[in-house]
Every structure is written in structure tokens, then in C-alpha cells.
Computed example of a mutant assay.
Amino acid sequence: MQQIILSDYEQTPALTDVAIPEPNHGEVLVRVKAAALNPLDVKLQLGRVHAYFPLTFPSQMGTDLAGTIEKTGSLTSRWRVGDRVMARLDPTKGGAFADYAIVPEDQLVLLPQDLNFNSAAGLPTAAGTAWQALVEIADLKAGQTVLVHAGTGGVGSVAIQFARGLGARVIASASGDGVEIARELGADQVIDYRSEDFATKVSDIDVVLDTIGGETQQRSFDVLRSGGKLVSTVSPPDQALATAHKVEGTFVFHTSNAGRLSDLVKAMRAMGQSVLIDGVFPITSFAEAFGRQASGRARGKIIISV
């Protein structure tokens, strides 16, 4: 089979011929139909998250996938060959960018019949992070106001929809054609960050979802109401600043969780929500897809079709 392999940090990922793996106890072999790129893939390739996700080389790449079960290991009772599934793999092990992938059976989620493979592959990390941030950590409620930075990114595009579905007022930052996309996703107000300063446009925000970090994160404290919450997917917020502004600052460290993934899929279907897809690339064009992910210009998810 073919698989994307990283030989070392800062090296170019390569499409490589490898043997089809065999599932062990409690594992299944999934024939991958689609896999999604994430900002984490770029950080892993550059070695920027080595402290959290140390890699052993040669390293398999890819965490988010959707496909069908090809084979089950012994003592695997729940799943059957042919089941349509999705999963998020351990980032230190990877393996999603391949014809086949080994997945622990407790990390699999059954796909609804009306959910296609490309959309399903785009859900685990992006939607899981948005759900964890807004629902589990921020406990966002109807009537509250949330500011979503980078509203047309993978996490931001889902976060806008989740927040609207929860009955919150949504303000998003975007640029270029992303301004209209954010509106179409459900944002009540969109700030073009290239020409507008969000800190002068909004105030008394209940929740800020920070997907950018740096100066944007620091200045976001100024727009929160007393008792508000800043949740970052990029870096731990400055606790001294949080205390000074009388708000909470929390870092989302997203982990694979099949229960959460199942819950958010049900919620998205109930609210009529969908995955924003930037583009679909064959695995033979992985270099082009990876370059677009690294550029930071993607609108939603970049999907690798296998």
C-alpha cells in the first residue's frame, strides 16, 4: 500500500510503498477513503510540538480519517467488515494518510448513512476542538456573545455553527472572501481583521475562542466582560492577564475521544450543520495539499482522498 512518511523533522513528507499492517487484539484495519490535514500536521513536521508529541522516525503522518473496516483483530467484538467509520489517531503514531490504517476499536465512531467520507474525515480534530472549547470548557449558553477568531479556519468554521446552534450571538474575524463565508456560516457580525481592529469594534464579550495566539490572544482580554472566558487552541493564556481582567483563561489540549466525536456528530446533524471544505486532493498531490495547509490560507478543511 501507499502511505505518507516523514523521515525527520523539517523534511518533505513522501509517498512511500509499505506493507499492509495487520490488526492486533482490539484493533481494526480501516480502508481509508478520506483523511484530513490539520495545522497540527505542519507543527509536527516542523518539530514545533516535540515536547507534547515526540515522533519516532520514520513517522507515519495523519490523524483524522474516514473509511470502511477491512479486517478486525482478535477479541474485537463490536465492529464488522464493511462498517463505515471515522476516527482520530494518536498524533505521535499517525497513519491516516494511507490506503489502510490501524485503529483501536474504542476510537471508532460509526458514520451516519447521510454523512459522506470527505465531510466525516474533516470532523475529528476541528469539530472536536470546537466542541471541547465551547461546550465542555466555556459552557456557552443561549443569549451569550462569543467572538471566534479566524472564523473560516477548520476550528473556527465549526465553532461559528456550534455557537449559533446553542443560541449564542456570534462575532467572527475573517478576511477577504472569508468575510462572506463567515456570514454564510451564521456569524451575526464579521470583522475584517485586515482593515478593522476587533478591540475597537466589540466589548463585553462572554467568550473568546482564540485560534491565533500571540498579540491577538493578549488583546482579546480587553474585549471580555468581567467573569468572561478566553479559550485558546494555540497556547496557554497569560494567567496574570486573566487575573487582572477578572476573567478565565484556558488552553484546549484536544485529545482523541470517541464519545465526544459521536456526540458532536449527532449535534451537528440535529442542527443541520456541515463541514466547510477548502479542497479535496488525491494522495498523489499531498505536497500541494500540505503546502496549502502550511500557508494558513485554507477556508475550512483540506481533505486527502485515498
Score class of each variant (00 low, 15 high):
residue 172 A to M: 01
residue 293 Q to K: 05
residue 226 S to K: 15
residue 187 A to K: 01
residue 69 I to C: 09
residue 124 P to H: 04
residue 248 E to T: 10
residue 205 I to Q: 08
residue 62 G to F: 13
residue 262 S to E: 10
residue 261 L to Q: 05
residue 86 M to I: 05
residue 133 A to P: 03
residue 40 L to R: 00
residue 249 G to H: 07
residue 151 G to D: 10
residue 204 D to H: 13
residue 160 I to D: 02
residue 22 E to T: 13
residue 169 R to P: 00
residue 157 S to C: 12
residue 252 V to R: 06
residue 91 P to W: 09
residue 77 S to G: 15
residue 227 G to D: 01
residue 266 K to S: 15
residue 28 V to G: 04
residue 117 F to V: 08
residue 158 V to S: 08
residue 110 L to C: 06
residue 148 V to T: 04
residue 77 S to Y: 14
residue 93 K to Y: 00
residue 132 Q to Y: 05
residue 84 R to P: 02
residue 145 T to A: 09
residue 202 V to M: 14
residue 31 R to C: 08
residue 190 V to R: 01
residue 223 V to C: 09
residue 47 G to S: 08
residue 240 A to I: 11
residue 228 G to D: 06
residue 164 R to G: 14
residue 37 L to R: 03
residue 240 A to E: 12
residue 200 T to V: 14
residue 120 A to E: 04
residue 192 D to W: 04
residue 239 Q to I: 07
residue 51 A to P: 00
residue 148 V to K: 02
residue 273 Q to M: 06
residue 243 T to D: 15
residue 130 A to Y: 03
residue 122 G to Q: 00
residue 16 T to L: 09
residue 65 L to E: 03
residue 178 G to P: 08
residue 139 D to M: 11
residue 246 K to Q: 15
residue 48 R to H: 14
residue 165 G to S: 07
residue 228 G to C: 04
residue 64 D to M: 10
residue 210 D to V: 10
residue 248 E to Q: 14
residue 55 L to T: 08
residue 205 I to D: 06
residue 23 P to I: 02
residue 15 L to H: 03
residue 203 S to P: 00
residue 25 H to V: 14
residue 282 P to V: 11
residue 217 Q to R: 11
residue 107 Q to C: 10
residue 66 A to M: 09
residue 161 Q to H: 09
residue 64 D to F: 07
residue 126 A to Y: 03
residue 154 G to P: 02
residue 134 L to G: 02
residue 125 T to S: 13
residue 25 H to M: 11
residue 240 A to K: 12
residue 231 V to Y: 02
residue 244 A to M: 11
residue 105 E to D: 13
residue 96 A to V: 09
residue 3 Q to P: 03
residue 91 P to V: 14
residue 281 F to Q: 04
residue 134 L to I: 05
residue 26 G to E: 06
residue 211 T to C: 14
residue 41 D to Y: 06
residue 181 I to L: 15
residue 104 P to W: 00
residue 300 G to Q: 10
residue 274 S to E: 05
residue 50 H to V: 15
residue 303 I to Q: 10
residue 206 D to S: 10
residue 262 S to V: 03
residue 114 D to W: 01
residue 64 D to L: 09
residue 39 P to Y: 02
residue 290 F to G: 05
residue 61 M to Y: 00
residue 146 V to T: 04
residue 138 A to N: 01
residue 202 V to P: 12
residue 277 I to Y: 07
residue 223 V to W: 01
residue 107 Q to F: 03
residue 82 G to P: 00
residue 161 Q to L: 12
residue 222 D to L: 15
residue 156 G to H: 03
residue 245 H to D: 08
residue 16 T to W: 03
residue 226 S to F: 10
residue 192 D to M: 14
residue 25 H to R: 13
residue 119 S to K: 04
residue 242 A to W: 00
